[in-house]
Simulated scan of single mutants.
Amino acid sequence: MELLTPGIGLIAWQLLIFLTLFFVLRKFAWKGILSALKSREDEIDSALKMAEETRAEMAKLKSDNEKLLAEARAERDEILKTAKETSNRLVEEAKAKASEEASKILEDARETLAQERATMVDGLKKEVASLSIGIAEKVMKKELAAKGAHTDLVNELISEAKLN
């Protein structure tokens, strides 16, 4: 049991060495250790503040980026809307112009057809008149082959002319 219980002298010497070491360390090392710990604590606080500022700046940049994306999307939608409206307007204008030109071409064709019809009718009238005169001439020659028939025809025409 003696091994387990230290002697009073040993305890006293250990206490004296501990207190001497404590005072020496306190006198020479304690300030350096405390200043190093304080310096390290200040560096950690500074790093934490910088991390918080960086986090806040990143959050601000993220919100700015989202805002810019929203603006870009809105601008894209506006451009697409304008392009669609322009496209629709151009299509409508092209349809109207095509319809107008088709109507004009149809009207021109009708006028041309009417003119050609009138020309054909005039030509037919002239041809019918020419044929009628030719037929009448041949009939007259045949009927008026005799000399007395001419005189009878002239007298008859004169009497009809007086009636009119």
Score class of each variant (00 low, 15 high):
2 E>N: 07
103 S>E: 14
45 D>Q: 13
92 E>C: 01
73 R>N: 08
107 E>F: 02
90 L>G: 00
137 E>R: 08
76 R>K: 15
71 E>A: 05
127 E>L: 10
94 A>W: 05
26 R>N: 14
10 L>H: 11
84 K>T: 03
102 A>N: 02
67 K>H: 10
1 M>C: 03
102 A>P: 01
151 T>H: 11
116 E>W: 07
36 A>S: 05
140 M>N: 02
145 A>T: 07
80 L>W: 07
72 A>G: 01
114 A>I: 06
30 W>R: 08
44 I>N: 02
32 G>H: 07
49 K>H: 06
133 I>T: 00
7 G>M: 10
36 A>W: 07
36 A>K: 04
11 I>K: 10
134 G>I: 08
83 A>M: 03
20 T>D: 06
133 I>K: 10
38 K>H: 04
50 M>G: 02
154 V>M: 14
60 K>T: 01
122 D>V: 11
45 D>L: 11
163 L>N: 04
54 T>P: 00
58 M>F: 02
133 I>M: 06
59 A>K: 02
25 L>I: 07
33 I>C: 01
136 A>L: 15
100 E>I: 01
78 E>N: 11
77 D>V: 02
11 I>S: 12
80 L>D: 15
44 I>D: 01
157 L>A: 10
70 A>Y: 04
80 L>E: 15
11 I>R: 12
46 S>Y: 00
27 K>S: 13
68 L>S: 02
161 A>D: 06
87 S>I: 00
49 K>P: 01
98 A>E: 15
86 T>A: 08
113 L>K: 12
136 A>F: 14
